[in-house]
Design a protein around this nucleic acid. Structure first.
Length: 500
RNA sequence: GGGGGCGUAGCUCAGUGGCAGAGCAGUGGCCUUUUAAGCCAUUGGUCGAAGGUUCGACCCCUUCCGCCCUCACCA
C-alpha cells in the first residue's frame, strides 16, 4: 500500500513533525464559519476577521505571496498567504499544499482584480493529505475511478455533490408530504424468512444462532400491510430493498423504495397523492415543474394523463384483445418476444412492454391492469378480469406502482398458491401464510404505492445512469493488490476452504 | 450472457513494429494581486495481466482481468 502513497508527501510529514506541527491534530483551533455566510454579504463584512476551514486547492505561488482556494461544504473562497503577515508559518509554507485540510484565520478583503479573499493571519494544518490532487482542470474523469473512489469524486468534482443534495431534499420532501397527510413512518424487517411482495430473485443469507435461512427483502409490502390490519391506517417506509438481478444504468442490486399504504383509500386517491407528492417535490426541490431529461422536456404540473392498459395494448397492436390467447401468441412471435413455457399473461405483458412502453414519455398513469399480472391488487367491481392498479411512467422509466390493495384473504391465498404452481422460476417459492392470516383478521380497504427513489432522483438530477445518484454503486471488487482499492496487506490463508 | 468502446506517469491525455511522450501535480530556483498564473531547471513508467508472432511489441495475434455504453432480465 505504501507504494501508492506519494513519497514527497510522506517526506513532508516528517518535516512537519520536525517543525513541531502535527499532521493530524485532534482539535481545530477555531470555530469555522460557513464560507457561504461570508459570500452572502461580502461587502458588509469586509475588513472583519473570520475563521474558515476546508480543503485547500492548487497553490499559486508568487514568492512572498501565495494564493489558493479553500473549499468547504458551502462554497469556496480564495485565501491569500503573505510573508509579511505570517512570520511563524512562512518557513513551513511549502509543507502545506493542495488537498490538505486547513483552517485559516484572516481578514476579508478583495484583491486588485476584485476577487473575494481571506487574507490569512494564522494558518492551521488540520489534516495532511498523502495523496496528490486530481488534475486541477479536468478533475477526476475516469468513470471507474469516480465510482470506486467517490470520496475523491465528491471533492474533486464539486458538481457531483449537487446530485446527492437533490436526492437528500427529495427524500426530505417525501417525508414531509406523507407526514403532512397524517401518515407515520415505520421500519419493517429487512431480513425475511419468506420473501414476497414483488417478483424478483432475492439475496440469501443465514442466521447462525437460529440456524435458519434468511432473505434480504425484495419489498416491504407485506409487512406494511400487516400494519394496516394492526390499525396504523396510514404508514410509509423509505428503505433499501435488494434484488439479485442484473446491473445496468437503471438497476443496482440494492436500491431505495418508498412504499405507502392508506386505509380507506383506493387507487384513485393514490393517483391524487402521487400528483400532490410530485407537485411538492417540484416546487421544493427543483423550483419548477418543467425540466429536461434525456433531451426531452417534461411538465409535471398536475393532473397527469390517464390511459387504460388494455386500451393502450389494443391501440399499439392493431386492435388485438389482451385476453386473446392465440392472437397474443401470434403477435409475440411476430415481435420476436415469444418464449416457450411462458404463460399467456406473461407473454401478453411482454408484448405490452415491447410495443407500448417505449412510446410512453409521461408523466402518465397507466391504469387498470389485467388481474392476472397483479397478485396483490384488488379486482375491479365492473370487470373481474381487471385489477385496480396503475403504474406511473416518466422519462421512459417505470417510476411508480400502485393499487387498491387486495384484502380478501381467501382470494389472496388462492393467488399466492397459483404463483407457486406457476412454472415461472422467478416467482416466489413459498406462500406467506402469516400474511394471509393477517388478512383474515381484516385489513381495511386501502390504496398502496411504491416509488423508486433512485429513478426519481435520476430524473430530478438529469442523470442518465443510476450510478450517478448512488454514492457507492456496486462494482466488482478489484483483484487483491490493485491500486484503486489498495488495502493493508492481509495475511494469506493457507490452502483455502474445502479446496473450492 | 450477446454486441460496441476503452485501459500508457499521482491526474488529464498523445503516440508508433525500431531509445516511453506532453500538460498538470511533485522537486529546486525567480516573482506581493494570481485565480487552468507565468518563466528556468528537474524527478517520476510492470504502457491492465499472461502467453504468442517477430531480429525487435506499448503497437500485431490469443486468452484473461476491469470499466463504460448498449441489448436481454428487472424496478
Amino acid at each position: 500500500m505504501t507504494k501508492h502513497i506519494q513519497a514527497d508527501r510522506l517526506a513532508k510529514i516528517e518535516r512537519l513533525k520536525e517543525a513541531g506541527i502535527s499532521p493530524y491534530p485532534a482539535r481545530t483551533p477555531g470555530e469555522p464559519v460557513p464560507i457561504a455566510s461570508l459570500m452572502d454579504d461580502f461587502d458588509g463584512q469586509e475588513g472583519q476577521s473570520f475563521y474558515i476551514a476546508g480543503r485547500l486547492g492548487q497553490v499559486r505561488d508568487f514568492g512572498k505571496l501565495r494564493f489558493s482556494h479553500l473549499q468547504d461544504r458551502t462554497g469556496r473562497l480564495q485565501v491569500a498567504f503573505s510573508r509579511d503577515d505570517l512570520a511563524d508559518f512562512w518557513p513551513n509554507r511549502k509543507l502545506i499544499e493542495a488537498n490538505d485540510i486547513v483552517g485559516v484565520q484572516g481578514e476579508l478583503g478583495r484583491t486588485k482584480k476584485g476577487e473575494p479573499t481571506l487574507w490569512a493571519k494564522k494558518v492551521d494544518l488540520l489534516t495532511k493529505s498523502l495523496r496528490a490532487a486530481p488534475e486541477k482542470f479536468h478533475g477526476l474523469t475516469d468513470q471507474e475511478q469516480r465510482y470506486r473512489m467517490r470520496y475523491v469524486d465528491l471533492f474533486a468534482n464539486v458538481d457531483v455533490r449537487r446530485n446527492f443534495i437533490i436526492r437528500s431534499k427529495l427524500i426530505r420532501e417525501m417525508r414531509a408530504f406523507f407526514d403532512a397527510h397524517d401518515y407515520i413512518e415505520v421500519e419493517t424487517p429487512v431480513l425475511h424468512s419468506i420473501y414476497g411482495g414483488a417478483a424478483a430473485k432475492p439475496f440469501k443469507t443465514h442466521h447462525n444462532a437460529l440456524d435458519i435461512p434468511l432473505y434480504l427483502r425484495i419489498a416491504p409490502e407485506l409487512y406494511l400491510k400487516r400494519l394496516l390490519v394492526g390499525g396504523l391506517e396510514r404508514v410509509y417506509e423509505i428503505g433499501r430493498v435488494f434484488r439479485n438481478e442484473g446491473i445496468s444504468t437503471r438497476h443496482n442490486p440494492e436500491f431505495t423504495m418508498l412504499e405507502s399504504y392508506e386505509a380507506y383509500a383506493d387507487y384513485n386517491v393514490i393517483m391524487e397523492r402521487v400528483e400532490g407528492l410530485f407537485d411538492r417535490i417540484c416546487a421544493k426541490v427543483i423550483g419548477g415543474h418543467v425540466f429536461t431529461f434525456r433531451d426531452s422536456e417534461y411538465n409535471l404540473e398536475p393532473p397527469y394523463e390517464k390511459l387504460k392498459y388494455i386500451e393502450l395494448f389494443a391501440e399499439h397492436n392493431s386492435g388485438l384483445d389482451w385476453f386473446d390467447v392465440d392472437g397474443v401468441m401470434a403477435r409475440s412471435k411476430a415481435l420476436g418476444v415469444y418464449q416457450d413455457g411462458l404463460s399467456h399473461e406473461k407473454l401478453a405483458n411482454d408484448v405490452f412492454e415491447e410495443t407500448v412502453e417505449p412510446q410512453l414519455k409521461g408523466p402518465v398513469f397507466i391504469t387498470d391492469y389485467p388481474k392476472a399480472i397483479c397478485p396483490l391488487a384488488k379486482a375491479s367491481e365492473d370487470d373481474p378480469r381487471i385489477a385496480e392498479r396503475f403504474e406511473l411512467f416518466l422519462g421512459g422509466m417505470e417510476l411508480g406502482n400502485a393499487f387498491s390493495e387486495l384484502n380478501d384473504p381467501i382470494d389472496q391465498e388462492q393467488r399466492f398458491e397459483c404463483q407457486i404452481d406457476d412454472k415461472d422460476p422467478e416467482s416466489i417459492n413459498e406462500v406467506d401464510y402469516d400474511y394471509v392470516t393477517a388478512l383474515e383478521f381484516g385489513m381495511p380497504p386501502a390504496g398502496g404505492l411504491g416509488i423508486g427513489v433512485d429513478r426519481l432522483s435520476m430524473i430530478l438530477t438529469g442523470s442518465t445512469s443510476i450510478r450517478d445518484v448512488l454514492l457507492f454503486p456496486l462494482l466488482k471488487p478489484l483483484p487483491e493488490g490493485s491500486d484503486a482499492t489498495a488495502l493493508p496487506e492481509v495475511e494469506e490463508e493457507e490452502g483455502g476452504k474445502d479446496g473450492s
